[in-house]
Structures are given as C-alpha cells and as structure tokens.
Design a binder for these strands. Structure first.
Length: 505
RNA sequence: GGCGCAUUGGUGUAGUUGGUUAACACGCUGCCCUCUCAAGGCAGAGAUCACGGGUUCGAGUCCCGUAUGCGCUACCA
C-alpha cells in the first residue's frame, strides 16, 4: 500500500510551494488508495515555532487535505536517530570525526562552500580526506570515552556511484567521489536532517517520497543511508520548483505575503479554487481541461504527468490589482460565479459575519432572499471579500458611496437631484413591485421627463448601492425591495457627500 | 569552483514512437450584447520552440557544444 508524507519544517507560514507538495502527495494517496501522513520536521529548535505548526495544520485543513494517522513530530524521534547513528559506527559504516567544529555563519554558507571548494582544488586537496575515517577502533572509543567531542559521519566508498530512478526526472547517477562523508550527528549529539528524514521515512513506512526538486541531489546521500541501514529504498518523485517573476527564488523576505497560503484564505479565496490553481503548477491533466473538482483532480492525477521545468508564479509587487497570479484570481472568480450556490453561501456567511454584516434571519426567514442576493451579485465578484466590500449595500443601510460613481452618475446631471425623488414617488405607487414593474415605471418616467432611461438607471444604481457598477438595475430594485429602494432614492446623502468632497455648494 | 536539473508567445501548460499553417488556458486588443461593470459570443495581436552546430528527405521532438536560470555542494532543513 502506498504511504506518502508531507514533511514541512515549522519555521514560518506555509509556503505555497510546500502547499503544492502537500497537494500532490495527497492526490497521489487518494489516487492510489494509500495513506497521506504528516510529519513536522521540528529538529531545528531555534527556528521552529508552535505557531508555525498551527498555521501549517490550518493551511492543510483549509485546502481540504486531511492527513491520516497521528502527526509525527520529528524532534520526538531524536533518540532513535542517535541510536541508528551509533549502530552504524558499531557496524563500521560510520565513524567518529574528532575535528573541531568549524564556525559557520548561516548567511555566508553558500559562498563559503564555493570558496572552500576552490581552495581545495587549487591546493590539490581531496575534500574527502579525513584523518579520522580510518582511525583504529580502540583509539576512537578511547577518545570518545575520555569525553572528546565528535561528530558522526557516514563512510562513503571512494569508488563507484549511486543510482536511483526519479519518477519525474528519470535516472539519476552520482559518483561517490563527489559526495563528502556526510555528517549524521553533530558533535553535540544533535541528529542532522538527512539522517532524520531517512530514519523517520523508514519508521513511517513511506513508500513514495514526493517533494521539491531542491532535494534531488541530496537524494543520493539518502539512498546511501537507506542501504547502510539495510532498508528498502522508496520511490522518489521530485517536483519542479515554483519561482518568482524574476525567475529567482520565491521567498517571504523578498516577496512578502504572496507566498503564504494563509494570505489566500484571508484575502477571500475559495479553497477549491486555489487548490485547483496550485495543481496546475508543474502538472497538467491529460485532457487539458483546467477547471477541475477535487474528484476530477484525483481521477486525472498521475506522477507521470508532472513535468520538469520550474513554474513562475506570476504577480506584480506594488500593484494591488495584480497582487497575485492573474490566473489564480480568474479561477477564484470563476469558482465564485459557477460553484453550487449552497456551497458558496457558508463562505459568504463567514465573510459577512467577520464584518458584522450577518443577520441570523439570513439563515431562517430570509434564507431564500439571501441566496438570491448572493446569486445575483456573485456574477462579477473576484474574491469572497467583495461580498462585504462592493456588496455591502445589499446587507446594510450603512454603506459608502464611491466618489467616481457620484461624479459620473449623479453630479454630472444636476437635474437628477429632482428626478430621482420623483422616481421614488412613482416606485412607491408601483404595485406589485417587481423587476418588470420597476422597469416599466422607470422607463415611463424617463419618457415623460424626456431623459434617457440610462440616466435614471445609473443614477439609481449609485443611490441604491453606492457603486457605478453592478447587476442589472431592475433586479437590484426587486432584490432590495420597494421600501429600501424608495428610501435610498430619496436620500440626499451622496449629494451632500459630493458637495463636501468637491467643495462646491 | 564542482556536480545536477531546466529552457515552447508576458504567465501556466499541450505537443508520448521526429512528418501538413506549433494547440489550450490566463492576460492583452477590437467588435457584438447592453442600463453600468462583469460574464458570454465573435475576431485578433503575440513564439525565428534559448543560441550554435550536427544526424535526417524532414527536428520543438534525437546527438554535441554554448549561454542563461535554478538547485545541491553545511556539525541548516
């Protein structure tokens, strides 16, 4: 049975790249009828936080990726990791390295590595030569017993090469001389990443490791460890990276909240929409259809459909209209306007509630009305936030008037100041009050006064909703009802606001 | 520095064994619809398939090289 895992380190919010890894693992588990496990890699005590763990769990939940079994916290397994390392020493597959720990500054590590490599090459030193590798066992044990600190390193053979088959990237080979004897245990006894992952994956019975491409080259080391440990090697599938628009690394420090999954939740994304979008980064369904429900995603998903080149996450910083990938935004709007209304309603409810616009009647007597409004206004919304912003006038008498709407639809025609109350008088007499009758009334008045119907329509739109844009106005009349429509048409509020704003009395 | 991976319109992708005008989605432009804005419909712009060689009757697809980008190379994860 297939067992896959998502293994994030809790050192910050859930990155969208990580979220995609989680998605692909989950999809694969669903597809194969396997298990999807969650492991929190919290071995870096300084950087790991509980808050981050919480946000990861919330993020997965939001995306609808339920994990099986108990969460595994890697830090809880440190003893097992150490024991495995000591066992490898016993077996002569690993050795104690008494070289004093080199001081390393995290920020300059990459540079330091390159410099060291250059220096070694220039001096003709084999970077893998380590005087402790062949230290006689007695001496090694004596020095350890005497309390001398040591790191534990895996012995990599000098000759030969590793090989594994990556499901996405194909056959991978690496010559042993290119791999340094990797450190398993720090001199303070702390187990290191490569050891911990392998032990935990064995322990958890992981059959398929699906993760970011940044782990591809390190996989050779892990394969060696599996072999040293006498465990069977899982299948590997590495996923192409998700890059920033400049094709650089997508990071929080440089790109801010666009990379955080919670941002999408907080800014009004429908989970299914974002999940759908994420699935299309690095993978494409065989039939090319892009709007896919979870069921379809599961059905169509295959590791073979994942391709190798990195995907660019397209957004424009400093441009609020394009704060994230346009296709994601489009897809969200598409979901909002096409998803079953019954599924959308609870999301709108949550949004209204958060903005104190929710009324319990919407769940009871006015349930039908509520569904009708949502159905009417969702057609042109892009995020759930829009229901409480542009949609505010439908749920509250206390809404703002858009400045451009006032100048374009009201102030430009001063006579509207009299025409709209006149329309209100007419509408008050209209019975029954429906979109059809409201339309007839309005058009009759326009004809009487010799003005274009559009003038009254657009003016009404701004009076009733505060906006210059929105659904068909006659639908709005009906949905808002006779009483509110008449009241708002008579209200002088936007006129005062216009005068104040524009300073002409 | 070494090793690895990648490279199809602005972006996401299709193009499985080489064979007609390189396909789809987002975005963009125009038109239609119309009470506005969307949606929808129609039309369109945009790719010398990174570059240079080669194999072949024929290459986005195979081979070699170059460039660029990214990753790994840590007593980080």
């Amino acid at each position: 049975m297939v067992r896959v895992r998502f293994a994030p380190s809790p050192t910050g919010y859930l990155h969208i790249g990580a979220a995609r890894s989680a998605l692909f693992n989950w999809l694969y588990a669903q597809k194969t009828g396997g298990k999807f496990l969650l492991r929190i890699e919290d071995t870096d005590l300084q950087r790991s936080t509980e808050e981050s763990t919480r946000s990861i769990i919330e993020g997965l939940q939001w995306l609808g990726l339920a994990y099986d079994e108990e969460i595994v916290f890697q830090s809880a397994n440190a003893d097992k990791h150490r024991a495995a390392a000591y066992k490898l020493i016993e077996e002569g597959q690993a050795y104690r390295d008494f070289t004093p720990k080199a001081q390393r500054d995290d920020a300059t590590v990459k540079q330091g590595v390159a410099e060291r490599a250059r220096a070694h090459a220039a001096a003709g030193i084999d970077p893998r030569s380590n005087p402790y590798r062949e230290l006689p066992r007695e001496e090694s044990e004596q020095r350890a017993a005497a309390g001398e600190p040591f790191a534990v390193r895996l012995k990599i053979p000098h000759e030969g090469k590793t090989h594994f088959e990556d499901i996405v990237y194909g056959p991978q080979e690496r010559a042993f001389p290119e791999i340094e004897d990797l450190v398993l245990l720090r001199s303070d006894g702390h187990p290191l990443y490569n050891l911990s992952v392998v032990i935990d994956d064995i322990e958890m019975g992981i059959t398929d490791v699906i993760r970011g491409q940044d782990h591809l080259t390190n996989t050779h080391k892990q394969v060696l460890l599996y072999e040293a440990l006498g465990a069977s090697v899982p299948h590997f599938a590495h996923l192409p990276l998700i890059l920033a628009p400049n094709k650089g690394k997508l990071s929080k420090r440089k790109h801010g909240e666009v990379v955080s999954l919670t941002t999408y939740r907080d800014r009004g994304f429908v989970p299914a929409a974002f999940r759908n979008f994420l699935a299309l980064l690095g993978w494409a369904p065989p039939d090319g259809k892009e709007m896919l429900s979870v069921g379809e995603l599961v059905e169509q998903f295959s590791l073979a459909g994942i391709h190798r080149s990195p995907a660019v996450f397209n957004f424009q910083e400093n441009d609020p209209r394009h704060w994230t990938d346009e296709k994601a935004l489009w897809m969200n709007a598409e979901y909002i306007r096409t998803m079953p209304i019954e599924e959308l309603l609870p999301m709108v409810k949550a949004e209204l509630r958060a903005n104190k616009l929710w009324r319990e009647e919407y769940d009871e007597d006015e349930r039908e009305w509520f569904a009708r409004v949502v159905d009417l206004i969702r057609q042109r919304f892009h995020t759930l936030k829009d229901f409480s912003a542009q949609g505010r006038a439908y749920f509250s008498a206390d809404f703002d008037f858009d400045e451009t709407a006032i100048s374009k639809n009201l102030k430009k025609e001063p006579q509207l100041k009299e025409l709209l109350p006149a329309l209100a008088d007419q509408l008050e007499q209209t019975d029954p009050f429906t979109s059809e009758s409201a339309e007839a009334t309005l058009r009759r008045l326009a004809e009487e006064k010799g003005v274009k119907a559009g003038l009254l329509i657009n003016g009404s739109r701004t009076m009733l909703t505060g906006q210059a844009v929105g659904p068909s106005m006659f639908e709005v009349f009906e949905i808002l009802g006779q009483k509110r429509s008449v009241e708002r048409l008579r209200s002088g509020v936007p006129w005062f606001q216009a005068m104040n704003a524009l300073g002409d009395v």
